[in-house]
Design a protein around this nucleic acid. Structure first.
Lengths: 242, 242
DNA sequence: AATTTTCATTTGTCTGACGTTTAAATGTCT
DNA sequence: AGACATTTAAACGTCAGACAAATGAAAATT
């Protein structure tokens, strides 16, 4: 592991990159202990403070974890799906909110990805997934539910649909897309009528998943996508005319 | 922005979380300048070194950027799609390599997501996207191409397909899935015959995109997915019998 | 043998200092 | 007055050294 003495970027960034490359390339394996901060500062010929800043950068990406005490130190972290979900969601949410992504674009992406899960979910969903879907549908049918709770339940429903595909990689990829949409969805006010319509579609989706009818799930999702897009459009129009 | 004095985690992690929350919630907006390190260390009642470690954590997530000199400081960063791609790819690659995700699972996820783009790409692809696809197909047909270059070209071809959908959110989401698969794909040795078969399918995909025939693209992708899975299976069998 | 104590190692945090960068403010000359 | 050079203050980047706190191994004790 070496750093480029000609680079003009921060030393801590260079050191972080060197270690990150070593991890990604497999030179450092999971649970392997890195040299102590003192040793690293000798190796890279920088102060301990600089090494620490580099290590904190890696810790922020869940690439390493640190432990205090004798025989402690920094260890290469096994990146879990859980941790990856979290990062994915944070990144996606910020990306959408900071780049003025239109409701249409985000909505299209979300449903396109979700439809990719439909046939798999219809084939593989467990009773647990179906139970979660039905429970969320029930919650959605409660009168007086706040718009925020409604959206949260909507996300939970679609999460169950995605997880039902039984592919953790898909779940991880989609977690970002679905959750990151929530702030945009929260801007829509769901009338009683639109809720009713959506609940009906959710019920159809759950039923088709139950029956193992992938194409029907797919088509219902398409309908739901179109309707959601329409609601967003109406909201935009109302705003424009005000 | 406050930190919990009862928390047992590192101060720098707590401070990073406090600032991160402020950014995600919108309390700090893009290009806004954070207080100087000295001011932050006063506010949080910690040393400057600790504040710096917190800021480096945020910098590692591209949430802030720093500028030296008078009127410099830490600024809330506009997270670009470019930066998000990079993080997404690093995370996905590590996730796959560290969690012993099977070839089947990764392959299934990749093609499921890619098929989600098929109808959009057939509708919206520009001449540029088609040109990129055809150029990559041409490269793939060159004799003597190394397995590594072959895979790189394969990724480039599929990137063009995904980008052809004209939805940056989709492109961002899929970048991780497609690129992260590359190390797994590299483990397959592509015979002349299998390459020929794949090139034929790629050509069909490009043609159908050209013709705007979404369902045909989708079906060809399904065939390609099945064939890729089969190749992976043969590779696994060969390994088992050795 | 089990328990307690000691102890060395390592990370977490603090203090104070100095160098470097940068843009604004000031000064100088035409 | 305006263009250019100089100064200066603010802020980050890096360093050295110190102490506290945690932790597990080894030694001492019961």
């Amino acid at each position: 592991m070496k750093i480029d003495p000609n680079s003009k970027s921060d030393l801590s960034a260079q050191i972080a990159k060197a270690i990150r490359d070593a991890i990604v390339s497999g030179a450092l394996i999971v649970d392997e202990r890195l040299p102590s901060e003192a040793e690293l500062s000798e190796q890279f010929e920088v102060s301990r403070a600089t090494v620490r800043e580099a290590l904190k950068r890696l810790a922020a990406q869940s690439l390493i974890r640190t432990q205090r005490g004798a025989f402690g130190g920094a260890f290469v972290n096994r990146l879990s799906f859980e941790e990856a979900y979290g990062q994915q969601i944070t990144t996606s949410t910020l990306l959408l909110s900071m780049n003025a992504v239109s409701f249409e674009t985000a909505c299209e992406a979300r449903f396109a990805l979700e439809r990719a899960c439909a046939p798999l979910c219809a084939k593989r969903r467990t009773p647990d997934h179906l139970a979660t879907m039905r429970a969320e549908i029930f919650r959605q049918s409660q009168p007086g539910l706040s718009d925020e709770s409604w959206c949260a339940s909507d996300v939970a429903f679609h999460r169950a649909l995605v997880d039902g595909a039984g592919n953790p990689v898909l779940s991880y990829q989609l977690a970002g897309a679905v959750e990151a949409m929530q702030p945009l969805m929260n801007m829509i006010t769901f009338t009683a009528r639109s809720r009713e319509r959506i609940i009906a579609l959710h019920t159809k989706i759950a039923d088709f998943c139950d029956a193992g009818d992938g194409p029907a799930v797919d088509q219902t999702l398409e309908t739901l996508a179109a309707y959601t897009l329409q609601l967003g459009q109406e909201m935009a129009d109302k705003k424009a005319n005000r």
